[in-house]
């Protein structure tokens, strides 16, 4: 193989071209690169246009009340998104409540406390969690996590906190709590790795100043580092929220897929993404398909907004950084 830096390897095969030809070819190459870059913008626009077009029959028929109608009745062609929207938001909320404290702890430990070597290895391992395909997490959820919830966690919760409507009713295992927990497991590596990167951008002087006036390590983290990184950490959490809202397989497998709004976390629920996964290939009438596509459009627009906010918050710290998630 010729060396990268040997000039003979670099010169174009037909170096007899005039300067004009070279300029033209450089221009064509530049145009190709630009076209590839611009294609993602066109793609996102195409997704939006295509979804709106396909959802149009449902949008015309149901209008904005689609969003707050509870009834979803394919037999009578009446479609409302509220139970699905509720399931999506509620499962994500449960996930955030479970995952954010843990993720912050992980990020603080890895960025501020652990020695460099330990931090590298542990970061690597925590990020492996993010690489587990969601369908495998769902399989584990069905056969390992849900039985554990049904036999251990939910009975314990209902014995101690059963007077709260949240923890009332029989333990099913499969349900909103299971959906939220599986989402929390997916959230931790994302939120903790982005938060860790955010904490690393906090200037050393910020820490040194706090240490210099006699603060303990926790006081340094709590008073000097976290306030500085607050915006970025909120961005990390919102980024994670964007993922949980659209997560499909693992949730579909453990949330129970029953369209209802119940105060109890033990009860089954249904998310937008799960409804799409289960019902789309079974939809028989045109209006049914169109209503499902309108659900997809709602989900798409929500995740676009959530992601845009998250990127904006995180980017203020590292304008061009690839925040791996």
């Amino acid at each position: 193989m010729r060396s990268v830096l040997s000039p003979s390897a670099l010169l174009p095969p037909r170096s007899g071209l005039t300067r004009g030809h070279q300029a033209w070819r450089d221009g064509a190459f530049r145009a190709t690169l630009t076209a590839c870059g611009v294609s993602v913008i066109l793609l996102v626009a195409a997704v939006l246009v295509q979804l709106i077009a396909a959802a149009m029959p449902a949008i015309r028929q149901f209008g904005p009340s689609f969003l707050w109608t509870v009834r979803w009745d394919p037999v009578h062609s009446v479609f409302g998104a509220l139970t699905y929207a509720y399931g999506t938001l509620a499962s994500s909320l449960v996930a955030l409540i479970l995952a954010v404290p843990v993720s912050l702890g992980v990020a603080i430990y890895l960025a501020e406390i652990a020695p460099a070597g330990v931090s590298t290895v542990l970061s690597f391992v925590v990020e492996l969690l993010a690489s587990i395909p969601s369908v495998i997490l769902g399989l584990w959820g069905i056969f390992v996590m849900a039985p554990w919830l049904r036999n251990a966690v939910e009975p314990a919760l209902s014995r101690t906190l059963g007077w709260l409507p949240l923890f009332s009713g029989p333990p099913y295992g499969i349900g909103l709590l299971a959906g939220g927990m599986i989402l929390a497991i997916m959230l931790v590596p994302i939120v903790s790795s982005v938060s860790r990167e955010v904490l690393k951008t906090v200037p050393v002087t910020q820490r040194e100043a706090a240490y210099a006036i006699g603060a303990t390590r926790w006081e340094v983290i709590h008073r000097a580092v976290l306030p500085y990184g607050r915006t970025g950490i909120i961005g990390a959490v919102i980024l994670g929220l964007g993922r949980t809202l659209g997560e499909t397989m693992a949730v579909t497998m453990v949330i129970g897929n029953r369209p209802q709004i119940s105060p109890s976390l033990f009860q089954p629920a249904y998310t937008i993404a799960a409804a799409l996964a289960n019902e789309f290939s079974e939809a028989t009438t045109d209006i049914y398909v169109s209503a499902l596509i309108e659900l997809a459009m709602v989900l798409f627009v929500i995740t676009l907004i959530v992601n845009a906010i998250a990127r904006w918050l995180v980017w203020r710290l590292a304008p061009r950084g690839v925040v791996s998630a």
Partner: peptide
């Protein structure tokens, strides 16, 4: 920005987009 946003689009939505397309 759009590439990062596209990265965050739910995969099921991508599936439905390709279905219609």
């Amino acid at each position: 920005f759009t590439a990062d946003v596209l990265n965050g689009v739910p995969s099921i939505v991508v599936g439905i987009f390709v279905y219609t397309l």
